[in-house]
């Protein structure tokens, strides 16, 4: 098993932390993982992205040109990464603010209205967990139990009361993702 994933959006959307949770929970399942962020000025309001690789075997390059899965959270990132999905791969995008929909026909495309849903749930900070839920529905390569364990291990105890909200967000994401 090997999944090469790019998550791309605006700085502040939780792109890097979502990637970290994905990598950490896969590590808990005994997988090899790598997490490589765009770092620097991107984080101050521009675009942010992270490459996460999860594999049964030793990972060679942490930096990739093409991906099995692209999780896209804004128009700029869609423009940049739609063409980088391997044929037969998966593109998941949040519909909010997208004016030019993806057009490829040789990949599987899913839409998830996570931004709208997170606002409706009054849980804007759970936006990235809704997206993560969508990914797990489409590609269940890591257990939700491991994700929750990963969250518990990495969050300071004072935030542990937020764990149920996060789990609810993940499950909501699993419900609302739709194939295009």
């Amino acid at each position: 098993m090997k999944q090469e994933i790019i998550i791309a959006g605006f700085g502040g959307q939780g792109v890097l932390s979502m990637g970290k949770i994905l990598a950490y929970s896969s590590l808990l399942e005994g997988k090899e993982v790598s997490w490589f962020p765009s770092y620097g000025p991107e984080q101050r309001g521009g675009t942010a992205n992270v490459t996460v690789i999860v594999s049964d075997n030793r990972i060679s390059s942490p930096i990739l040109n093409t991906f099995d899965v692209a999780i896209i959270l804004n128009q700029q990132s869609l423009n940049k990464f739609e063409s980088k999905v391997k044929p037969g791969g998966i593109l998941i995008y949040d519909g909010y603010g997208i004016s030019k929909e993806p057009t490829r026909t040789d990949i599987f495309i899913y839409r998830i209205n996570a931004m709208d849903t997170s606002i409706a749930m009054n849980a804007a900070k759970s936006f990235n967990m809704i997206i993560l839920g969508g990914l797990l529905k489409v590609l269940p390569f890591v257990n939700i139990e491991s994700i929750m364990q990963g969250l518990k291990n990495s969050l300071p105890e004072r935030h542990h009361h937020m764990l149920p909200t996060n789990e609810a967000a993940i499950r909501k994401g699993m419900e609302i993702i739709e194939k295009i």
Partner: peptide, 10 residues
């Protein structure tokens, strides 16, 4: 280098 410093691994 920046890549090795900034990337996360097990």
């Amino acid at each position: 280098d920046g890549i090795i410093g900034q990337m996360m691994e097990k």
